[in-house]
Design a protein around this nucleic acid. Structure first.
Lengths: 246, 246
DNA sequence: AAATCGTATTGATGTGGATCAAAGGGCCCC
DNA sequence: GGGGCCCTTTGATCCACATCAATACGATTT
């Protein structure tokens, strides 16, 4: 029998290969030709495994690299002096973490693994260097940053002007869409985060999240069993969002 | 007598000069040497005047350029199908507008002038081109995008976990800090936006904003006269933020 | 299979901010 | 410099979500 295969957080020497990665359509290599992807491969320093609940980086850490999620998922959060915290996002495979660190050379939020995960470490200086040579990489990187800004505006809209059930509906539809983009079922998935974390992200208390789930279940919109979600009526959820009249 | 002086939005031919601009420490030229600033000058296509209440761009418009605010101020907002809208930001001189458009090649929000304003039009294709040649420009641009992401996270924190008075205190301190960075008084300034717009940005109704202003006034934290604000007790406002205990 | 602990559900009550409503400015345009 | 309009303030009432509290569930350990 093998040793337990779970290892502590380490930068392993395994050579990464974007060209072989099934996430390349979502990630930095998107739109690059094979030769350019090879250049990217060379630049990606290493992979790093992060166990559930461990930090990939913390607020205040010096910024050196951005990270592409190869396996698993993360949350990012911001913490105030008085202890209040806010989840600012949930990230899945192919998404990029660490962009917040560019502005001040220090990270401004915490990134925590929701499950045992693995990231590709992309040293930022080298990314900028290669972006100066490879136009397609430069553009894709800019698109990824811009996408983050647009996503954040969506969350601001959600937090600023939606009611609890609308927020949860938006959240579920968003998760569904992202699972779909990764080749998983749009209607059935497993949430990696707790009700408390969902609540923090949506600006609600965990009890409110739980009650909204129960209401959706009563109304036949979803089947909920703890973290396992089955969406039964996607149009119904969308209706909840668009027609504000309750 | 002249014709009505309100003109349609136009791109004027006046040559811009970043090297002469007193905003260069806040804007794209930051950190560049004089020769590089000259290259940037050459790239900036034109200026454009935008009158109060007019759109610089609208959600859905094709993305071609980003804009540096040379004079005046703007708000950006997002509008849902059902009519609800959310102000996602207020922008002042030296700040950059339009980054939301990179991700899909279309703008995803509206940018509206709060007063008669002027922007420098920076064709995005040429910015990317020059960024490939000028390392300092590339890095400054990345910092500006990252700063926007960090700012958005701050707003998410505000919307997700602060009470009304905390939100307004954070808003006032933020405005004060940005006026200071532009050489204006930290303690006395003129807000260009209405209570309704402030409310939309802070996820509150205009009445709540008004009441919070009145409360601050009663408590001697600020002197409010319509849009004219005088901050009397900055530490007091900061205390409101950090010590959540009422 | 029992014990433990984090997570989730559900109920009862409280409250901050929304909503509804009515005056008051201030400013722009004629 | 008068009239109209938008913006703001303030008061009274309402309601969605928070808070407090108890229980239930599931996974893991023993």
């Amino acid at each position: 029998m093998q040793m337990k295969s779970v290892m502590p957080v380490t930068a392993v020497e395994v050579k990464t290969a974007c060209s072989q990665c099934n996430l390349r359509e979502l990630c930095l290599p998107f739109g690059l030709d094979p030769a350019e992807v090879d250049q990217l491969d060379e630049m990606v320093g290493s992979r790093r495994k992060v166990k559930r609940q461990q930090h990939l980086y913390r607020s205040g850490d010096p910024f050196e690299a951005i990270y592409a999620i190869r396996a698993g998922s993360f949350k990012t959060d911001v913490i105030l002096e008085d202890g209040r915290d806010q989840v600012t996002g949930f990230q899945m495979t192919g998404e990029v973490l660490g962009l917040d660190g560019i502005s001040t050379e220090n990270h401004s939020c915490n990134a925590i693994a929701l499950e045992d995960s693995e990231v590709c470490v992309i040293p930022f200086g080298r990314l900028e260097e290669l972006s100066r040579q490879v136009e397609g990489l430069q553009h894709q990187f800019h698109k990824i940053m811009s996408r983050e800004i647009v996503r954040d505006h969506g969350v601001m809209m959600l937090l600023g002007s939606m009611r609890a059930e609308e927020r949860l509906a938006a959240f579920l539809l968003n998760m569904s869409q992202r699972f779909t983009a990764r080749g998983f079922s749009a209607s059935e998935f497993h949430l990696r985060m707790t009700r408390d974390e969902i609540g923090s992200y949506l600006g609600l208390k965990l009890e409110t999240v739980s009650r909204a789930f129960s209401r959706f279940q009563e109304e036949g919109l979803v089947a909920v069993q703890q973290k396992h979600i089955r969406i039964l009526d996607t149009p119904g959820l969308k209706r909840l969002l668009n027609h504000h009249a309750g």
